[in-house]
Design a protein around this nucleic acid. Sequence first.
DNA 1: ATAAATTAGAGTAAAATAGTCTTAATTAGA
DNA 2: TCTAATTAAGACTATTTTACTCTAATTTAT
Lengths: 133, 133
Amino acid sequence: MLLTRASEYALLALDIIRNSEKPKGAEQLSIELSIPKSFLAKILQGLAKEGILESKKGAHGGFVLVKKSSEISIASIVIAAEGKTPAVFDCSQYSDTCPNGVIGSCTISPFLVTFQNKVDTFLQKLTLEDIFK
Amino acid sequence: MLLTRASEYALLALDIIRNSEKPKGAEQLSIELSIPKSFLAKILQGLAKEGILESKKGAHGGFVLVKKSSEISIASIVIAAEGKTPAVFDCSQYSDTCPNGVIGSCTISPFLVTFQNKVDTFLQKLTLEDIFK
DNA sequence: ATAAATTAGAGTAAAATAGTCTTAATTAGA
DNA sequence: TCTAATTAAGACTATTTTACTCTAATTTAT
Ligand code: SF4
Ligand code: SF4
């Protein structure tokens, strides 16, 4: 699978956060979405680190959107949630067992690059606003 | 990752097979590609089952293409290699823990469907011949 | 002060990936 | 017809990734 639960939970949570006036707490979100609280909290922390969310500590704290929905790309969300850009096939991960010896110089490499570009472009063009229309 | 080593090995092997006159044995392929023989054999067996390759047992046996390269879609190869169509995010796998209760009715579902369609279409349109141009 | 919240990081359980190994079946050719 | 070369099938194992949990520390509105 290209996306893991981290991206799913991030997107589901962001849809609620963007429709809320007040900061939304991780616990409240976890209840509304039936998602494990600790796991969701970790994911939201990641989004905050990447500047997608602002986090407010302490009483009545929680998470709020920093930018407008139309200014947040799905790519940035997924990268923040997954910790890396979603890969079609990550050769670098197999650098020591690449059948071809030198990464990027095999016969299927051009196909993989093209495919990855398609995916990247698709995610970069889409905004948070777009997907909830 | 969307694709696993099974797809990588399948595509690398198919490029050699299609350029060979005689049947190519799993062992020979595994040597040329520096791929574990048993693992590659399993993958080639899968391709044979799906009608992408023909397998010839016994001495001087091996694998040959059934159709022309231009008549084999990358989608069919990947599906044969992976045992399933490559999923952007497989909700059905999480049917019992779907935060939304009913699969396909959440706010992000339309996005996932669109994304999956993009991937499917891309792979269906490409043929084995295309990617080695 | 206190209670409500995020933060940080270590640790764990389950699942998927990436293989191996062994035995059986088939077949070209000597 | 024997033999060596080859695929077929399936159980098994090792490694890695995913999907979490738990605890202690920190921050902040009231
Ligand atoms: S052989 Fe090609 S696809 Fe495989 S790891 Fe090396 S560069 Fe990547
Ligand atoms: S909530 Fe939506 S994305 Fe998540 S499993 Fe259910 S249907 Fe799929």
